[in-house]
């Protein structure tokens, strides 16, 4: 089943059309990379899925998006939708709480109370993002003390802690050094089992390294979506070729 499905989807900021007539599907258990020039609407596309784009002034949308088979407008409350769709942003954000409280921020809201459950969630999620060994002795310390790469992994752990089925990542590595980037890429590949991961990236090498499929967006239109290798090596559209050819010089 497709985890996320766009159906004739359009968005506007005020009078300005951003995404136009998007029809695309994202499968479970796979990583899809989204590439495209700056300002083409990649972030808007991600934020449409969990309905945080609506928080912006002047945002309007037409058409529909289905998450796990259900229209995002039909979710009784956005809370349920956003619990199923985790999101990680470009800037690593640590909530001004302890490391542990960052991970448990969502679960506590959703009613997990037993101490042993909370401990278990903390450990499991921090292990999933390969942060456990680095922070297990200072779980009660402020998360602000972590490095940028650690914060970004913490952000992923925080999103995973509410057990989403879709994980959206908006240029998660753009402010990180190569080592942290490598770590995150590795853990995303592991997480892809059981999750639908959609990652926006400006790093075409990264898209090639980790994604099963890649989608190319230009000026708000989906030009092409294909298995990653095909898209990079023999794209159907000359526009795609033009864009990815940068990769091969």
């Amino acid at each position: 089943m497709n985890a996320v499905e766009f159906i004739d989807f359009n968005t506007f900021y005020g009078p300005k059309a951003i995404l136009q007539n998007i029809n695309v599907e994202f499968a479970s258990n796979s990583i899809t990379a989204i590439i495209g020039p700056s300002g083409c609407g990649k972030t808007t596309l991600l934020r449409s899925i969990n309905r945080t784009a609506e928080m912006e002034i002047g945002f309007k949308s037409q058409g529909d998006i289905k998450v796990l088979g259900k229209s995002i407008k039909e979710y009784k409350n956005v809370s349920l939708l956003r619990r199923r769709v985790g999101m990680v942003y470009q800037i690593p954000v640590a909530l001004p709480l302890s490391i542990r409280a960052n991970v448990l921020f969502g679960p506590k809201y959703y009613g997990v109370k037993r101490h042993s459950d909370l401990e278990a969630i903390t450990e499991k999620c921090l292990r999933q993002v390969a942060l456990w060994d680095e922070v297990k002795d200072r779980l009660k310390r402020p998360a602000a003390q972590l490095s940028g790469g650690q914060k970004q992994r913490l952000a992923i752990a925080r999103a995973l802690a509410v057990e989403p089925q879709v994980l959206l990542l908006d240029e998660p590595c753009s402010s990180l050094d190569p080592a942290s980037t490598g770590l995150i890429e590795e853990l995303l590949t592991q997480l892809a089992e059981g999750l639908c991961i959609i990652i926006v990236t400006h790093n075409l090498f990264q898209a090639r390294r980790i994604s099963n499929e890649t989608a190319f967006i230009l000026d708000g239109q989906l030009i092409e979506k294909a298995p990653t290798q095909k898209l990079f090596e023999s794209p159907d559209s000359p526009k795609t070729r033009g864009f990815v050819s940068g990769l091969f010089g």
Binding site: N77, S79, L80, Y109, Y110
Partner: peptide, 8 residues
């Protein structure tokens, strides 16, 4: 999967 109470 609903969370009784939180919405209210």
């Amino acid at each position: 999967m609903t969370y009784p109470g939180t919405e209210l």
